[in-house]
């Protein structure tokens, strides 16, 4: 079986590669951005440098980063690790600021109440501030997810296979079918990531839905 000249099995395996390359950095990036964002917020002098630094990272075009990382990490140019690291960097760049903003959106009286009840700063972060910051962080995560999914396809140019491989294959064979299929698959994947994050957010923030019925 094949779709527009591409065997179904190949579409499936490229899709799995794509999910792995775009999704794993999202998780790692989020885990790194939380302490960074918290640090930026609690140590004011860190805020400027951290936000500016991560902002600079975000300006570096993806293809350039895919090519530079092997030189820095000592990996092979074809190694998917380069892509994973690059996407993680982008995610961290985008989310650090979001996490800082999200945490600072927690009302001060809530923070003070938690402190008054005897929470240590770390437990307060985990038990009170992070849950309340979920809506803001989730909005940032959705942006990161959608742009990760579309950026990863550029990695086809350095020979790392995922849905973007359909673009280069199609172009080399002068065939429109695989390219269009790749675009559709990639956009669909982005939408699925988006919906998944939305769903998880809903589950994590029951008070949001309870507050505004209708």
């Amino acid at each position: 079986m094949s779709v527009w000249g591409v065997p179904l099995g190949e579409v499936w395996s490229l899709t799995l590669d794509h999910i792995y390359l775009a999704g794993l950095p999202l998780l790692i990036g989020l885990l790194l951005a939380i302490p960074l964002g918290w640090a930026a917020l609690t140590r004011r002098w860190l805020y400027g440098p951290l936000i500016a630094g991560t902002g600079l990272l975000y300006t570096i075009p993806s293809l350039a980063l895919f090519i530079l990382l092997p030189g820095i990490l000592g990996t092979q140019i074809l190694d998917p690790v380069n892509v994973l690291v690059a996407m993680t960097l982008y995610t961290v760049a985008l989310l650090t600021r979001t996490v800082a903003d999200g945490l600072s959106s927690v009302p001060n009286h809530v923070r003070q109440a938690a402190t008054a009840m005897g929470y240590s700063p770390l437990r307060r972060l985990v038990a009170v501030e992070l849950p309340l910051a979920v809506p803001v962080i989730s909005a940032g995560l959705r942006v990161a997810a959608v742009s990760n999914v579309s950026i990863v396809s550029v990695a086809a140019l350095v020979g790392v296979s995922q849905l973007g491989t359909l673009f280069t294959d199609g172009f080399n064979r002068n065939a429109m079918g695989p390219i269009v299929l790749g675009v559709i698959a990639s956009v669909t994947l982005a939408v699925l990531f988006d919906v998944l994050i939305l769903g998880v957010t809903k589950v994590l923030t029951p008070w949001q839905t309870a507050g505004r019925s209708a």
Partner: peptide, 18 residues
């Protein structure tokens, strides 16, 4: 603005050229 972020630029580029 939200939707366009999801579109892979490489694919669009190839389609335009072809």
């Amino acid at each position: 603005a939200g939707g366009f972020r999801a579109v892979p630029s490489l694919g669009v580029l190839f389609i335009a050229v072809l």
